[in-house]
């Protein structure tokens, strides 16, 4: 069985690409870091990969809006390739800046199937850059990246963003997300109850922290699982024993799925 191939797409200003690359490698994928320009000039082909990872950070300095410039570049040259990639059942994951890009591109939530922008990640309601640990609850583990989690499980993950307030275009889009259970991760307090600030760090509608498309192969989320792949990268690792980091199972779920499928 060959290892699935994963591309971590970067450009100026992205970060965590090394964490994503190492997480994918250590979960069993054959990963590489690829600059967006190599896809634009066809030096690399998206079709040669099974997973596309859009990393966090501040692509193009987050000027205009977070993720707007990278999303516009993808829209100009690569969007059809990415839409076919998703239609083929291949996997796309975008934490933080990657989530902002997936929303801008219309890959999420895409409730109408038209690949149009149906939502936004606006500035945090606190008007602050929120960089800390938060709790999220897994609402639906049908998403390929969440198969190794139990529904109702509470995860402790790091966040670091200024623009994470999830807003839908209208009530209809929000209702579709909830009806189809695409709100796979919600901000909660330590007891697992949906609560306001600071538990919901940005003021997102319905405490939405992560969205997965209906097919289950595109995940966007504000927290950073790639930053806590190993136990020693968790903020409280000296107090809370050994084992894997909280982000490990996101990558293992995806890689095992790809090994079965491709």
């Amino acid at each position: 069985m060959k290892n699935p191939r994963a591309a971590v797409m970067t450009m100026e200003g992205t970060n965590n690409e090394m964490e994503a690359y190492l997480s994918l490698i250590h979960a069993g994928a054959n990963a590489e870091i690829v600059h967006i320009k190599k896809f634009e000039n066809s030096e690399k082909k998206l079709g040669d990969y099974d997973l596309l990872f859009l990393p966090g950070g501040f692509s193009a300095g987050d000027y205009i809006r977070a993720g707007a410039i990278m999303a516009a570049r993808i829209k100009a040259k690569l969007i059809r390739d990415i839409e076919s990639f998703v239609d083929d059942g291949r996997l796309v994951m975008g934490p933080c800046n990657g989530f902002q890009i997936l929303i801008e591109l219309g890959l999420l939530p895409n409730t109408e199937g038209k690949w149009e922008t149906e939502a936004a990640l606006a500035q945090n309601i606190s008007n602050r850059f929120e960089a800390r640990t938060i709790y999220v609850k897994v609402n639906n583990n049908k998403c390929v990246f969440l198969k190794k989690f139990r529904e109702g499980e509470i995860l402790k993950l790091p966040i670091a963003h200024m623009e994470g307030r999830f807003i839908t275009r209208d009530e209809r889009v929000l209702n579709e997300i909830l009806t189809r259970r695409m709100n796979v991760l919600s901000y909660v307090n330590r007891e697992g109850k949906e609560s306001g600030y600071p538990w919901n760090p940005n003021g997102s509608m319905m405490n939405i922290a992560g969205l997965c498309n209906e097919k289950g192969n595109v995940l966007g989320l504000m927290p950073h699982p790639e930053r806590v792949f190993y136990k020693v990268t968790e903020s409280d690792w000296t107090r809370n024993g050994t084992g894997e980091g909280m982000g490990y199972r996101f990558f293992l779920s995806a890689v095992e799925h790809m090994k079965e499928k491709f």
């Binding site: 205009i64 516009a72 936004a120 606006a122 839908t168």
Partner: peptide
């Protein structure tokens, strides 16, 4: 429409 604004917000 292509870059400067997100029509949702």
């Amino acid at each position: 429409s292509k870059l400067l604004s997100n029509p949702v917000i």
